[in-house]
Amino acid sequence: MSDWNPTMDLENALNLLSHPYRRAILYCLIEADESLTQDKLAAQIGTWQESAAGGPSEEVHQQICIQLSHCHLPKLAAVNVIEYDKRHGDVVLADKVDDLQPLLDLIQPVDDFPKEMCDCPCQ
C-alpha cells in the first residue's frame, strides 16, 4: 500500500463507500469491466436485497432506480469515480475509482453484497 497516493482524502472516500448501494455499483462495474445501465445495476441491487423473496418486485426495482438516479450515481459522478449519462442511464467507471480500489479490496470480502451477484444479468 505504500504506492497508493490517492487524490481523494480518506474521509471523502469512506463517505462514498458508506452506503451499500454505492459499493454494489462499484463492485458490478469493476466486475463487468464495461459500462452498465442504471436499470441493470438496480436489478442487481434488487436481486441482492430481495433474494429471500425470490427477487425484486417492480415496485422495489423502481424505488432503487429512483435512489440511484437521484442520489447514489450523481454522488459518485460528482467526484469522478463514475461517469453517468442521465439521458441514457449508462454508467461507467472513471479515473478516480483507482483512489477507492484499495479500500474496496479490503471491504468486499466482508461486505454483504456477494461478488457473484455481479456475474448475473449485469453482464
Rank of each mutant, 00 (worst) to 15 (best):
A13W: 02
R22I: 01
E50P: 09
L10Q: 08
S69F: 06
Q123P: 03
M8R: 08
S35Q: 07
L10C: 07
R87A: 15
D119T: 10
N12E: 09
P109W: 01
I82W: 00
T37W: 03
S57Y: 08
N80P: 04
S18R: 13
E11C: 08
G55M: 07
Q101C: 06
A52W: 10
V79H: 06
D3H: 09
Q62A: 13
Q62E: 13
S69N: 15
N15I: 13
A43K: 11
N80Q: 14
V110M: 11
I45K: 00
L100M: 06
I25G: 04
Q62D: 13
Q44W: 03
C71T: 12
G54W: 03
A42N: 07
G89K: 07
K115I: 15
D105H: 12
V92Y: 12
C120A: 08
S35N: 11
L16I: 04
A24W: 00
H72T: 10
C28M: 15
L76E: 00
D3W: 03
M8Y: 01
A94W: 00
H61L: 10
V92A: 15
I45T: 03
L106A: 12
Q108R: 15
E11I: 15
P6W: 00
Q49R: 13
W4H: 10
N12T: 11
E50L: 05
I25E: 01
P102N: 02
S18W: 06
A24D: 08
W4S: 03
D90L: 11
L36D: 08
V92H: 07
C71W: 03
D39E: 15
E59M: 04
A78Y: 00
E31H: 10
I82A: 06
D39K: 15
Q63M: 10
E50H: 08
G46W: 05
E34A: 11
S35V: 04
M1C: 14
G55C: 10
N15T: 13
Q101G: 01
Q63V: 13
H72M: 10
W4D: 05
Y84Q: 09
E116Y: 05
L17E: 02
A52L: 14
G89I: 05
C65F: 00
F113S: 01
V79M: 04
N80S: 11
V60R: 14
S69M: 14
A32F: 02
S35T: 07
L41T: 10
M117R: 15
D3E: 09
E58S: 08
P74D: 08
L14Y: 02
D90F: 04
M117D: 12
E83A: 15
L16C: 09
C65T: 06
V110N: 10
L29F: 09
Y84S: 13
A77Q: 14
R87F: 10
